[in-house]
Design a protein around this nucleic acid. Structure first.
Lengths: 238, 238
DNA sequence: CGCGGGCGTCAGAGTTCCGTCAAGAGGTCC
DNA sequence: GGACCTCTTGACGGAACTCTGACGCCCGCG
């Protein structure tokens, strides 16, 4: 990873670009980075699905013509678990193609060649409407008997004090809290926190889970909130 | 999905069509009504804003060329109080126009002449993503008289408490529950839980089935939910 | 009435998995 | 360069889980 620890306060929009044509990827990456988006790129569908799971992009730009799988399959693969906006690029102008992609779950369909300004505007629109309603959403703060997690401010409060967490500790906590009550498999946990290639290093989990419990549990030896499900994963309970 | 809303019986999707060209309005209205949308139509911006406030449409189709006011002003007027999806129609292909409309709050931009199929697909996409998350937490929950299984959270609840299951127990339960009411053969059960090379070790089944019944049945000796079909397999009943 | 197959139950052995500690590697800030 | 801080890695005791064999029960059948 390039900046595993550095990304601190600004929640930059993360874009996943999926295209097998290097020039297009390059043009997109340059333009997006210039506008302070965080960009990941994949040149085939399999990599794309992996990256999406690992990085949780805020928006996906997908070229339908991929070497390894049908673009529509990529859409379905994503839609199986996420509602992230998908902006489709395609050289095909056929109406059927558009309808198929849109009905599979795409949010927008742009035909090549496209104007960069227009694409960026469509991207802004897609991101904008995916944003949570500015006024509502109490979900950013999760309260337990022992501590409070503020997902927006990235802060944990306990006994009237802020608890200091390292980036990895926070990342792990975040994944667990966003799935409050649900079991999160160790593989999923590892891949979301450490990256797609870390699926088996369960010792990381043990170390950092212990760290979290030491900092947040009233009695770290008998955790009430960070619960181990042996052989499966961990679960955060309020 | 045949119905515009995605199959669930719900009040019809309401569309507000704003265009000053009678033929286009007519074509849209006919096509939309044929697909069981409710349709309102306005021929100018002022009427459109009034109608939108009165009728609360689920999606707006807006032609930018209106007699009384600039189309972008209509977008702003709507965005002042609602996040309803806005699909813009326009004869102008200019990139600047598109960018302006999209940044003013439009969700999509289609240039005339447009294909009706494509427009309808884009409309479906706009409506779809505005829908609330299906099922709230989309947790698949199976309820019985004695306990509750949450397949997404991997949780079993009984008598106000969470029941702790081992990985094998959970896996077995999952296969049975996903086939509620159906007989699952022992070979199938073994292969799904233990792997393709296990087809005959029926003693595993006996042990873990007993485990499940002890943890979940009110009277493990006389199971109501985990039913043995001698010589064949097991069946889960609510 | 004896026999055998299929099933449920139990408890122990063996293995895997987890929590904990500690030490080293790498990076950052003064 | 030195003093942190953080992430990685290895080792170990103990806990949890899986597997296995033994036993008893029920039932159909010879």
């Amino acid at each position: 990873m390039l900046s595993p620890t550095g990304g601190i306060p600004r929640p930059a929009t993360r874009v996943l670009v999926i295209d097998d044509e290097p020039q297009i990827v390059r043009a997109l990456v340059i333009n997006l980075k210039a506008r302070h988006y965080e960009v990941d790129a994949a040149h085939d569908g399999a990599t794309a699905l992996q990256l999406a799971a690992a990085r949780h992009p805020d928006v996906v730009v997908l070229d339908l013509g991929l070497p390894d799988m049908d673009g529509v399959e990529v859409i379905r693969g994503l839609r199986g678990w996420t509602r992230v906006p998908i902006l489709v690029l395609s050289a095909r102008h056929s109406s059927d193609e558009k309808v198929e992609a849109l009905d599979a779950g795409a949010d927008d369909y742009v035909t090549k060649p496209f104007g960069m300004d227009e694409l960026l505007a469509r991207l802004r629109a897609a991101v904008r409407r995916a944003e949570p309603v500015p006024g509502g959403e109490e979900d950013v703060i999760v309260d337990t008997a022992d501590f409070t997690v503020d997902l927006a401010a990235k802060k944990v409060h306990r006994d009237g004090k802020d608890v200091r967490l390292t980036p990895t500790e926070w990342h792990l906590l975040e994944v667990l809290v966003r799935n409050t009550g649900r079991l999160v498999g160790q593989k999923q946990l590892l891949q979301e926190v450490w990256g797609p290639s870390y699926g088996t290093e369960t010792n990381y989990l043990r170390v950092y889970m212990a760290q979290l419990r030491r900092k947040l549990e009233a009695d770290p030896a008998h955790p009430r909130h960070f619960i181990t499900e042996p052989g499966m994963g961990y679960r955060f309970e309020k």
